[in-house]
Amino acid sequence: MAITTRALAFASRWFDPATVSSVFEPLVADWQREWHSANGSRRVWIHMHGLAAFAIATFVSSPAIVKTAPPPAVVRRVIACIAWFVTVIAVLLAIPFITESRTSWQAVPQILLTLLPSGIVLAFPFSMLMAVDVIRRERALAPNVARATALKLAFGAVGFMAIGHGFVVPAANQQFRLMITPRNVTPPIPGFRERSTLELLTDPSRQQPAAPYTPAGSIRRELSNRAVLALMPAIFVWLRWIAHDVHRPRRFWPLPIAAMLIVVIIGFFSSYWTGLLAESAWNLRPGTGYWFPVVIATLIGVARQLIASRRELSTGAA
């Protein structure tokens, strides 16, 4: 029976009360009655059929989640929080490059413009932690509205990163390289990092085997890097969301945002470089190492969610 209760709780978290009442409650009620009237191994079949029906009903009803609009005030707060964090970090990250480039002060605005995209896409995934906090702080938001907002944020962030890292940053990087190149030196040819995702995907050398230190291998690594960086905001949204759900009997949980940011930044870059070292040391397929942070974050998220559901069950049983 726990499975039907959990299925209904899941639906209540994601869908509006009207959809829950008109779609999921009748489904679960019929499922529960069928289960009660059966015995033995048939009950297993009933649960399998019930779960499949529930999954299909969830999928078919999912446009309701897309249609759930967050209040404009919340959207404004989320955007403002992301914009502030990203701008400050991007400008701070650009300062060393500007001082290193030793160009005239008149050229600084132009150089800053070419450096900002890289800083923005670097800071953007981490801003998701604060954006989630903004959503969770809105106590008046219905659970399904809060979740729909977070889901849209995650999808939007992935799209932003895919476009930013795939098209804007490569062009800006190349422009920066051209700007800092002295006039009497041959302009640098765009490397793999300075080529758009589309150019990398359509590169003829991808037909060759993707061995390490080959063009095909380098392209695979760059594409993996971009894919992972595009996914990271969604993973951070998920992790921070779960952190709020896991009720720990500690004073500082979930961790304050500043502490959480430090932990996540250190964790991300440690796992990022560990993955690259592992790829090189174990001679893995090019690009495999980039996926290490995703694997680690997913494992942490799944473990946390298991803890949360166990606590939920034990609280319910009590």
Binding site: T19, S22, V23, F24, P26, L27, H49, A52, A53, F54, A55, I56, A57, V60, S61
Partner: peptide, 10 residues
């Protein structure tokens, strides 16, 4: 179908 009938009924 069991998965879609409740959505249609709603």
């Amino acid at each position: 179908k069991r998965g879609t009938v409740y959505v249609t009924l709603g």
